[in-house]
């Protein structure tokens, strides 16, 4: 069972591990963005199990995005995706068999083999 992550005020949040935060800062720097960036996380239909994680580095949040600050990195998330991602931890799996960024999502009742797709 994946643990759900809560903010200090007791609400479900999106958590970023230190390793994932470090990798995100590296990617942002490569894209020419220093401290002023956020990671946009989202969900769209598709993938083996029905829903697919999306991840991108953005300069600023979208108009209706929720903004969460975690481990020094801003997370931008649209409200519809938040319903599927509340309580999720974003980690980074490195090494030869590493999967890159990995979502540990407590809402997922099933996850496909590669970990990029989930169902609720």
């Amino acid at each position: 069972m994946t643990t759900a992550y809560y903010a200090e005020d007791g609400t479900l949040t999106i958590s970023i591990t230190e390793k994932a935060a470090k990798m995100l800062r590296n990617f942002a720097r490569k894209e020419g963005l220093d401290d002023e960036f956020g990671v946009k996380v989202g969900v769209k239909g598709g993938g083996c199990s029905g829903l697919l994680y999306t991840l991108s580095i953005e300069k600023e949040a979208g108009l209706n995005d929720k903004v969460i600050d975690n481990n020094g990195v801003k997370v931008f998330i649209d409200k519809k995706s938040y319903i599927f991602l509340a309580g999720t931890e974003l980690d980074f799996s490195d090494g030869l068999n590493g999967k890159g960024f990995v979502f540990q999502n407590p809402n997922a009742t099933k996850t496909c083999g590669c970990g990029n797709s989930f169902g609720v």
């Binding site: 083996c48 083999g113 590669c114 990029n116």
Partner: peptide, 8 residues
Amino acid sequence: GCYIGQEV
């Protein structure tokens, strides 16, 4: 690439 049911 992936679509719903692709893995199976």
